Simulated assay, not measured.
Amino acid sequence: MVDFLLSRPDVDPRRIVLAGISQAGYWVPRALAYEHRIAAAVADPGVTRVVDSWWHNLGPDLRHLWESGDRATFDRVIEDALAEDGPLAATWRWRAKPYGIDSPFDLVAEISRYDLMPVVDRITTPLLITDPDGEHFWPGASRELYNALTGPKHLVRFTEAEGAHRHCEPLGRALFEQRVFDWLDDRLGAADGV
């Protein structure tokens, strides 16, 4: 993608920005670990391990069962729960669809591979990470990512008092955009020495 953008005469190579919301809060930093031609990036929120959002909802008993390696029992327990709860089954199917894996055990194994911590030290691009109150998919991950980064970084809190809390600040997008674009103006303006 960066090669394509750089081939275009209407793209300033010093101002390419990468931004992602929700699970892209993992994919953006992951890309930055390998692609160093990005001028600045935004992760909303920061995600260190994709599977953490699954464990948050599955709970410690299922995690222990999965960690035991008992594939048959884990699959049966999940499949029984999905058969009993239509909305839960719909959410599971929606979240599992990108992976194309039917076995719940194998799905969690695949998702567990997406761990940013082994490559976080490779990130040198300035990264803005959001940290909203009430983050329910990856609570604490924004701060964990921020603390692990050694390069330029900025953690932006969004609070309930501002009306900009919860995952991806759904009711505070104007405030989100103001803070993100102000930060990007500072970063990208520096590319010109402005």
Score class of each variant (00 low, 15 high):
A40E: 13
A40N: 10
A41G: 13
A41N: 06
V42I: 14
V42E: 10
V42K: 10
V42L: 13
A43M: 07
D44R: 07
D44E: 10
P45M: 06
P45K: 09
P45I: 03
V47N: 08
V47I: 13
T48S: 11
R49I: 01
R49M: 09
R49V: 06
R49N: 08
V51Y: 13
V51M: 14
D52G: 06
D52T: 07
D52P: 09
S53I: 02
W54E: 08
W55S: 06
W55K: 11
W55P: 12
H56D: 12
L58V: 13
L58G: 10
G59L: 12
P60K: 15
P60N: 12
R63E: 13
E67C: 08
S68R: 04
G69V: 04
D70W: 09
R71T: 09
R71Q: 13
A72N: 14
F74N: 07
D75Y: 08
D75S: 04
D75H: 09
D75C: 04
V77E: 03
V77K: 01
D80K: 02
A81F: 00
A81M: 03
E84V: 09
E84Q: 15
E84S: 15
D85K: 01
D85C: 02
G86Q: 12
L88S: 11
L88E: 12
A89M: 03
T91Q: 13
W92S: 08
W92C: 07
W92M: 05
R93I: 00
W94Q: 03
W94Y: 00
W94R: 08
R95T: 00
R95Y: 10
A96R: 03
K97C: 00
D102R: 15
D102W: 11
D102H: 10
D102S: 11
S103G: 07
P104R: 00
F105N: 02
F105R: 02
D106R: 15
V108P: 06
S112N: 07
R113A: 03
Y114D: 00
D115V: 04
M117D: 03
V119H: 09
V119K: 01
D121M: 03
D121R: 13
R122G: 03
I123T: 10
T125C: 07
T125S: 05
T125Y: 02
L127K: 12
L127V: 09
L127S: 05
I129S: 04
D131Y: 15
D131H: 14
D133N: 11
D133G: 12
G134F: 06
E135F: 03
H136V: 06
H136Q: 09
F137P: 01
W138I: 01
S142C: 01
S142T: 00
R143I: 04
R143N: 02
E144Y: 02
L145H: 06
L145N: 05
L145I: 11
Y146Q: 02
N147D: 15
N147Q: 14
N147R: 12
A148T: 02
A148F: 08
L149E: 03
L149H: 07
T150S: 15
T150G: 15
G151S: 14
H154I: 00
L155H: 12
R157S: 10
R157N: 09
R157A: 14
T159N: 08
T159R: 12
